[in-house]
Structures are given as structure tokens and as C-alpha cells.
Amino acid sequence: MKPKSIMIADDDEDLLFLLKSQFTSLGYIVNSCHKGKSIIEKLIKEKPNIILLDVNMQGIDGDELCRQIKKDKRFSKIKILIMSGEYDVERISLSCGADGYIRKPLSYSTIQNKISTIFS
């Protein structure tokens, strides 16, 4: 199955723009969220197949958000990839129940590979 809809959550607006334009050009429906707190409302509305979730956002931790989303039955079908530049990103990803992780600095090819691995 190929995901059709992606939600990207990161507090860096340049990064959001870059990811959004790339994945839109590849044919995905892309929604973005630059304030972690508003993500739940957006998830209910957009029902994405996958979330790319930054761990270090101002005011809220992405791993904490991931836990909340994973607990919520409404979102049980959504896959989550966390993004972080921290050296122990793998451990963080396991501890918050994410479906995978992407190490920063990001590259388009890595993100695409991770997404296709999750959905294969």
C-alpha cells in the first residue's frame, strides 16, 4: 500500500516548506503543523496515513505527542516516523512507540526510503 496523505510536524518553517513542496510534487497530499499542540485537531480533520514528527519542538516534546497519538484509538491506523538529530533517536523512537525514525540532517532519499519500508 502506498500512503496518500502525509502530515509533517516541525517547528522550523523552512523545513516544513521544503518537505511539503517535495512531497506535494511527488503526488502526496501533504499537511503541515508547526505547533505541536494543534496536531490532534489536525489529525482528526485530515486523517493522514503517516506523520513525520519532529522530536524537539518549542513548548512540547514530539516523543510525548507520539505517545498520546499511539494511545488514542481514533488514530490506530496512522504510522508515525519521528525525526531528530539526537544520537539516541533509535532509543527515543522505541520508547515512544513510533513506527520508525529519521535522523537529522534530513535527505529526501532517506525519508522516501523510510516511508516505503513502513508501507511495504
Binding site: D12, L15, Q22, K104, P105, S107
Partner: peptide, 12 residues
């Protein structure tokens, strides 16, 4: 790493 990501993606 965040600005580095932006640099990498935009130069690509």
C-alpha cells in the same frame, strides 16, 4: 541539525 537539514534539502 535543523538548519543543516534545510541546507541539504534546498541545495538538493
Amino acid at each position: 541539525k535543523t538548519p543543516l537539514s534545510s541546507l541539504k534539502l534546498s541545495s538538493a
